[in-house]
Design a protein around this nucleic acid. Structure first.
Lengths: 208, 208
DNA sequence: TGACAAACGGAACTCAGGCTCCGTATAGTG
DNA sequence: CACTATACGGAGCCTGAGTTCCGTTTGTCA
């Protein structure tokens, strides 16, 4: 899913935004290092959690800590950068589905997509969607964008009766985040958990 | 709910177990301090999260750090003590419902109970049921007991068709834990989220 | 009440992890 | 090729949190 949106994501240039928004053009090696750091951080955070020492990230990226800190003045900023990127990606994916033929499929498909993403890259998404940490500051706007995009999918899915009428986008995001969280630990395969949650989200026409 | 089980929990003497299992009878003030520490820790952990410095707990308990560490040789051990107590309490609650008249109500009522408990005492339960941290060691046995107790409720609820037949106790625990987690952050009221999850757990006889 | 073991308090130690500083290396330019 | 601004590396500083130590206090028992 989300083919259209892939332009907004992917490995090619995770630092596009920063590079463009920055004033001067950044020396070639600096640009390269920045990218390396982002990729390393993403990978390490994903496999070890946000707790890992910054030194490890620098090492994995093949740069010194000094370099890392020149690009991202704070560990928190580094996390933020990655998170924002990822959230933006999801938002794009959601928007790409906004006028899909089957609103129900679009909605549930998106949820599945999110869970897949988050399962692959443990912690991160979960942390944000659950608003776990303190990135709320800068992330809030982006997060709000995502919520809005989800809201569109949700509204359309409701309109065709694919989703019960009494849920909010926040609740959906919370549940999805929760699913990832549970799956990330042990519990059960994320697909199973999500399946249950999705059934709960559908129009409830069960007897009692 | 769980009135019968209340004997196994409650404020009166959170340190009973340890006091009994210990060899010598513990001097009166020591016993009192131990209790104070446990209560303080429970309260502080609940409101601030497990991250709080040990000093804070000692302060809130009105004892020195030294005293705290004499009773619990490690912060981790302190957490464990609280968690074990709480899990044991939940297990007792679950067992008390094992022969309830209405298995479906018992099962869903229990889930609601867990969410209430966890919402009140943020983080803690969530951390364990999700197996979040590293308490797995000592907690695993108790956790397994809980799982087993939940399994009984689940099996009975399935038997009467109140719950779909393809869920595991682990999945249930994961979902409940995750729901608490999501509710603890922002998302939506825990009751709303749990409601959705529970609908997902019910026999799914919806059309498509 | 006196004596002693048990328990206390909290200053200080240890260690880990975030972050800074500055001497060195190098991309970019004429 | 030389020259300079830009960027790099990583030793080391600093803070904060967990834990220990030891002189003082206190419960307990005769």
């Amino acid at each position: 899913m989300g083919t259209t949106s892939n332009t907004a994501r992917g490995k090619p240039a995770p630092s596009d935004v920063a590079a463009v928004s920055g004033e001067r053009p950044l020396r070639a090696d600096a640009q390269r290092n920045r990218t390396r750091i982002l990729q390393a951080a993403e990978s390490v955070f994903a496999s070890e959690g946000i707790e890992v020492p910054v030194d490890l990230i620098a090492e994995k990226a093949g740069v010194g800590v000094g370099t890392l800190y020149r690009h991202f003045p704070t560990k928190e900023k580094l996390c933020e950068a990655i998170l924002l990127e990822r959230l933006a990606g999801l938002t794009a994916d959601a928007r790409a589905l906004a006028d899909a033929d089957d609103p129900g499929a679009a909605f549930f498909g998106f949820l599945e997509h999110v869970v897949e993403e988050a399962t692959a890259k443990r912690d991160l998404l979960v942390a944000v969607m659950g608003a776990g940490v303190a990135f709320d500051l800068a992330a809030s706007e982006v997060k709000e964008d995502l919520r809005a995009a989800v809201d569109v999918l949700l509204a359309r899915a409701m309109a065709v009766g694919a989703v019960r009428p009494d849920v909010t986008a926040s609740a959906v995001m919370g549940l999805v985040s929760a699913t990832c969280h549970a799956a990330a630990h042990d519990a059960a395969p994320s697909q199973d958990l999500l399946g249950i949650v999705c059934d709960g989200l559908r129009r409830q026409d069960h007897a009692g």
